[in-house]
Amino acid sequence: MAMQFYASPEQVQRDRSEYARKGIARGRSAVVLTYEGGILLVAENITTLRKISEIYDKIGFAAVGRYNEFESLRRAGIRMADVNGYSYDRRDVTGRFLANAFTQTLGAIFTETQKPYEVEICIAQVGSSPETDELYRITYDGSVMDEPGFMAMGGQAEAISNVLRERHDATADLKTALHLAAEALGSVGGENGQTRSLDSKQLEVAVLDRRRKGRAFRRIHGASLVTLLKGEQDVPEGDLGDVDAAPPQQATEKPTVSAAAEEQPAKAPEGDPAEPSDGVNGDGS
């Protein structure tokens, strides 16, 4: 009879934590920080797969790690937010509500499955002022932390956080905040410890704009991102980009009558009375 090896619960948890941390550290980093106009989300990303997304009206999502794992969490979060907003009230969908849901899901996966998720997530909710902005960090084991104005995930997150801690200013404008995020991401990963200069093709950028009504999420890409990174001039608010999928525009000439109602009933042929002529069966019987 084969003997099974025994491992203490503490050792199993340590092994899972070490496995998840190594997987997350291999990926490229992302930073989230507040600024005067809202919340800025920046990720180092050279692919078309997105690390930053919109969850709900005032709530954004950023993640690092294995794409297939955090993408499934993102889709589940969107469905949950839509169902609760439709069933109750849109104001009931908050960043704290979603952070608690992600915490329970990741905690259950970490303790009950053989392989933990190699992901780290940020749920950001923009408020009416920088003091009311909310940033929640959810880790692979279901732990959640309320971050004070900025955070870095993935890669060498500690070194990036040190740069943000020294220079972060919640009253800075968008251009200043974007320069800080790009410099923080480029402060690690260079050859022999040298800094890197990241351009628009290496960055995925989005904001949660507190001045917008309704959906606050906006992507920044193309010429607008290049202009902001160069710092030569400000970009007009209308040129910063828009949401991923805007609602369809209302039709200008929407029909008010269905096609079936427009069809005329067929006329009876001549000589075929509608009622029997003899008042019985019409055949003389």
Results as ranks from 00 to 15, higher is better:
G65V: 02
E263W: 14
T47Q: 02
V64S: 09
G38K: 02
T176C: 11
R74N: 09
E10Q: 13
R96P: 01
G282I: 03
G65K: 02
I52P: 05
F150D: 04
N192T: 05
G214T: 03
T94Q: 05
V205D: 06
K58L: 04
F217C: 05
P269E: 12
A81G: 02
R215E: 04
S8F: 07
G37D: 14
R137W: 04
F102N: 12
K267D: 12
R91Q: 10
G27V: 01
N162T: 13
P130L: 05
G282W: 06
A76N: 11
E204C: 02
R215I: 11
H168I: 06
Y86K: 02
P276H: 12
S161F: 09
R196W: 07
T47W: 03
S128A: 15
V235I: 09
V144P: 03
P248L: 05
S29I: 04
L229F: 04
A268W: 12
A157D: 02
D242V: 04
Q250D: 14
A108D: 14
I121R: 08
Q104T: 15
R21C: 04
G155A: 06
E147I: 04
A251F: 06
A182Q: 09
S17D: 03
R16I: 01
D244V: 06
I138G: 07
V207Y: 05
I55S: 00
